[in-house]
Design a protein around this nucleic acid. Structure first.
Length: 110
DNA sequence: AGTCTGACTGGAG
DNA sequence: TCTCCAGCCAGAC
């Protein structure tokens, strides 16, 4: 597994996020054994848009539950619509009950 | 090799 | 509960 690049590991883990659930960059980084590398995860997600197969980057938010990446989804509210479509509630660019829908890859990952 | 930047995080006020 | 500050890692110049 260490053979894979950190970015690739981020993509794979991000694809495991169930629909209607969300997680944070730090949780992914920690799950990959690189706690503190949350920024790298975010940076990697930036390339997720051109990654193949596609990565549900809209399910990855910061620890505040804010849609920090919504600008990267076309400068529109596309990211918010996707999340709402999955059953999530968004208020003021922030996920409502963020902690409730939070998906911990370290605990819920099979 | 050095410096800067970023879709971040945790702790303190 | 919210805001602000410093620390963090990898990649681009």
């Amino acid at each position: 597994m260490e053979e894979n690049n950190f970015y690739q590991q981020v993509y794979e883990l991000a694809r495991m996020i169930p629909q209607g659930r969300i997680t944070s960059y730090g949780a992914i980084a920690k799950a990959l054994g690189r706690p503190g590398a949350a920024r790298i995860v975010g940076y990697a997600m930036g390339q997720a848009g051109k990654a193949d197969p596609p990565v549900p980057a809209h399910r990855v938010l910061n620890h505040k539950g804010e849609l920090t990446a919504k600008e990267a989804f076309g400068k529109g509210n596309r990211m918010q619509e996707l999340l709402e479509k999955e059953g999530l509630t968004i208020k003021n660019n922030k996920i409502v009950n963020f902690n409730r829908f939070f998906w911990n890859p370290l605990e819920e990952l099979d």
